[in-house]
Amino acid sequence: MNAETRLAAQLASSRVGALAAMKGVFARDMKVAFRQRQDLLNPLLFFIMVVTLFPLGVSPEVSFLSQAGAGILWVAALLSVLLSLDHLFRHDFDDGTLEQLVLQPQPLFLLILAKTTAHWMLTGLPLVILAPVLGVMVHLDGNSIAVLCLTLLIGTPVLSLIGAIGAALTLGLRSAGVLLSLLIIPLYIPVLIFGTGTVAAAAEGASVGAYLALMGAFLVLALTLAPFAAAAALKISLSNG
């Protein structure tokens, strides 16, 4: 019995509580991801490479980089989250696990929340951890790096949550990757604006508490609404056949 069918059987057979089901889905996603470590590394490598392009393509001047650095890091992080979204449901869709999840008695949006959390732990969180190193490389000062990491910490879960909707909508379509970007990038714009805006405000010496609170509000909004939309989208995509 492989991990997928075992999970489905576990969830269905006993009266598993919603929380336990979420834990199961989360643990399984982590386990599967760590079995294919290259998939974990790819978005990170992509992140580093995109950031590298800017000094090469625009200017290696300290003045330019320290001014544009936060924006460059945010755009690169956004793109690498976007790149990794295709994997969020794809693997489970191909081997049929997803259909099992939809059929479970536990509410689907909670299971999606668990999957999205796992996705963020595997892509968003490593980006946040990597950001200070790249921040130093683009000559951001210490205070800006700290604020940047905070905004990424609050912002990347929003990216994963909104992205889950797009990934669910484009599941099983031809050229899903490009389509996913088209659908999702407009929705990412507010997060990008406030992410980089907060760092800019910090660089000018303004207090950033209000901006961070606003980003926190985005996160709460995404946490409460996005799983429902993704669940609806997932059901539609699966009924597509």
Partner: peptide
């Protein structure tokens, strides 16, 4: 679904822009 998600985002986008 996409249109409804979009319309929830429009005020946020407008405000942030």
């Amino acid at each position: 679904v996409l249109v409804v998600v979009g319309v929830v985002n429009i005020p946020i986008i407008k405000y942030s822009v």
